[in-house]
Design a protein around this nucleic acid. Structure first.
Lengths: 229, 229
DNA sequence: CGCCGCCTCACCCGATCGGGTGAGACCTGC
DNA sequence: GCAGGTCTCACCCGATCGGGTGAGGCGGCG
């Protein structure tokens, strides 16, 4: 955990609309070796400007800011500077913000009452490509993951089907009618019917609607590519 | 952060097949006020037995164990003792284990090189209903959440539909034919057709297959209850 | 070589679906 | 009371779908 001194110093920017918070956070960071505050912004728009001028490794981002809030600023920043990591600091550790922040590209999510040492450690983790989330918020993520549908390996589910049947299935899942599938796969409508009959038989389903439902519920959709598209 | 001494002591169990690890972890834990190791198990099966005899607040669980591994033990334990939290300790911080552990019901996931203080803090967080994940593994969770499809509020998508149309839609999404929908909703096939025609018109879609696809892609499925089921 | 699985296509048939039109009953709000 | 929306049902029609049967060509495998 002393690798920080060995590598180059981590360049940090702080974005918060309250000057008092900025200086407090800055002071918390600066006492640590290897951490250097190179820019301070009072809102998201200002931060984006500064990001163009400085090379920034990690941004300590407030959520509530005028003009451009922390979430949107994170999304824009990460789009233009993928190398720059974002660690969101908030007074509210509300679930909604966690998900929005992560979706925007944040790697960290902590409350502002985090200790100086923990903050420094979090900055190093984030800079190393890892992620740090406050325990309260992590619980939300855990619930989300636990509730997420179990991933299914498409290859196992698709095993019984022949090559051509998979292609027909792929078209079928786009909502194409037999005629459309025939044209797209260069066969006649009769042949399409034959393949679909085979698919229905293998799945033990009565019609194409059930096939679509089955495909979505078993994660087949998206894993089967409808040629060229 | 000193609330531990105020409330009752946290009762901890350790599950690991290596006696050396057990005693080392036990020693790390026992030095902290408010933490008490009340049971040690050398595999998952033994832990489950002990869990029936003791009231356990938090289990420090190894993944690799004979007879019953940490993941399955977590699932079984959490099923029978929902109050007992599980903090998984692993030498490998592999992504697969994180997801499996969380799915099994774990609230924490740390590597065994975690410091005594951090472990104690993690135990208190987990016991308080929060969650603690090692930064390396948290990065996997963050990627997962960022890649997950954006949640859609069903009410907004369903806004244009009347009550009866929603019910027909709900049945339609189960794969029911018009005749079946008619029987289930106590109307004639003709009426079902009328409602479906309205649905297709409002969505601008050509047939029921596209409706099913639309429903899955917009998160309508599961949020619309097909009456009674 | 012959068998077998896969892909291709054809024809027939009944069931289902979607489109169009019209209409009666009910309730709500102007 | 009357207009408008909703729910209900009816009839007709053409398109599509699914089931069944048969069959020819092609490639691999014993």
């Amino acid at each position: 955990m002393t690798e920080a001194a060995a590598s180059a110093r981590i360049r940090i920017a702080i974005a918060d609309d309250q000057a008092l918070i900025r200086s407090a956070v800055s002071a918390m960071v600066e006492v640590h070796d290897g951490l250097e505050v190179v820019a301070e912004a009072s809102d998201g728009a200002e931060l984006l400007e500064l990001a163009r001028a400085h090379r920034i490794d990690v941004v300590l981002m407030d959520v509530r800011m005028p003009r451009l809030d922390g979430i949107e600023a994170t999304a824009l920043l990460r789009r233009d500077h993928p190398h720059t990591k974002v660690l969101v600091l908030t007074t509210y550790d509300l679930d909604e913000y966690v998900f929005a922040a992560i979706r925007a590209g944040a790697s960290g999510f902590l409350t502002k009452d985090t200790s100086s040492d923990e903050l420094a450690e979090a900055i190093r983790s984030v800079h190393a490509g890892d992620a740090v989330i406050a325990p309260r918020a992590t619980a939300s993520l855990v619930d989300f993951v636990a509730a997420a549908p179990e991933p299914v390996d498409a290859e196992a589910v698709l095993a019984p089907f022949t090559t051509r049947e998979r292609e027909v299935l792929g078209e079928l899942l786009t909502g194409a009618t037999n005629e459309v599938i025939a044209r797209r796969l260069f066969m006649t409508g009769n042949t399409v019917k034959t393949h679909i009959a085979a698919i229905l038989a293998k799945l033990g389903l009565p019609d194409r609607v059930h096939v679509v439902i089955w495909a979505f519920e078993n994660g087949v959709v998206g894993r089967i590519r409808p040629r060229g598209s």
